[in-house]
Design a protein around this nucleic acid. Sequence first.
DNA 1: TCACGGGTATACTGATCTGTATACCTCTCG
DNA 2: CGAGAGGTATACAGATCAGTATACCCGTGA
Lengths: 192, 192
Amino acid sequence: MDSGSDAPPLTPAGRRIVDAAEELFYERGITAVGVDLIAEHSGVTKRTLYNRFGSKDNLVAAYLTERDRRWRSEVRAAVAASGSAEDAVTAPFEALRSWTSTHTRGCAFLNALAELPDPQHPGHRVAADQKRWLRGLFEALATEAGCHGPAALATRLFVLHEGAVATAPLSLGTVAAASDLARELVRAAVRG
Amino acid sequence: MDSGSDAPPLTPAGRRIVDAAEELFYERGITAVGVDLIAEHSGVTKRTLYNRFGSKDNLVAAYLTERDRRWRSEVRAAVAASGSAEDAVTAPFEALRSWTSTHTRGCAFLNALAELPDPQHPGHRVAADQKRWLRGLFEALATEAGCHGPAALATRLFVLHEGAVATAPLSLGTVAAASDLARELVRAAVRG
DNA sequence: TCACGGGTATACTGATCTGTATACCTCTCG
DNA sequence: CGAGAGGTATACAGATCAGTATACCCGTGA
């Protein structure tokens, strides 16, 4: 559940493959990108790609797992950088703000869920787990901050967060709006 | 902007093609479904499909346009069925509730945006327009109900709505949570 | 009567898809 | 020395992709 250190240490070629997959899958879509293109962009033979990952589905899962690892790291850093337990609850929205300022394709995990309907697909599982982790993080942070009704509050913060990231590419000011409302909700839950 | 009556009257075969496209594109994904499969499912020759729509991209746009037309109709019905101007503001959440009770693949438009990164793609435009329409509808309803700060409120309601529909397939209770919070926000904006 | 719109049937093109086969190279470590 | 891991290079299989070509059928309306 921690998505932590049980990652197999990637070989140099494996590293380049995942890097290329991260960019291409995210920018152009998973189904629209073929393994040949990824092999070419990473300067690696298709044979090597299949030796490392076995199948495209597994490579997709590796791509999402890597994204998940980095994203959790950024969120945890934002939580650690927050000044108070109350601010920590909305720290994921700060991480979201900086993410959306440089990326215009929204959430890699929501996009993956849109493209991979099959719950058995390894990539689907990674993406769904990422979302469940985030909702759980909100609940843990809300509990830590002494908020009333941490479970219900966490679901509300989670909805706001996902709505913001899902609509971020539309540039309708949803990230700031969600962030502001989230802070109001947390403040009310701490006081109330 | 109304997505109304300027729709070309579909021929019988065209009707069946769009119906099949609606089901297949939504359930399995746009890129993952080929035109041959749609032709087969609609009992139509591929020649006819191309005579009607010209290209897969155009068929995708027709699919999303049809979905948009139906969805706006359902939302407008929910608005009309609401008992008061205040209830009308959150009527789209009622439509969302009934939609997610029978569909587990989330929002066809968000899914389309996830699969079609190119803003020039005709399907991308239809999906983006649908989202802008919804945000505008919230603002119009909020204004009608005499809410304070209707523009900011509309963006908040929009974020909640999109977060709910984006995470609905995860079954984390987000639709009910967003709906409840939306009503609280509207009530506060009417009173305040 | 006859032209035309809507549709069927079948075959095809050229590209691209995931995945595999075969053969060779090079470095490290026991 | 020798084995194995990591990788390259090239070619291939079989399926599927979007889209086109050719030829025919049938109903309606001028």
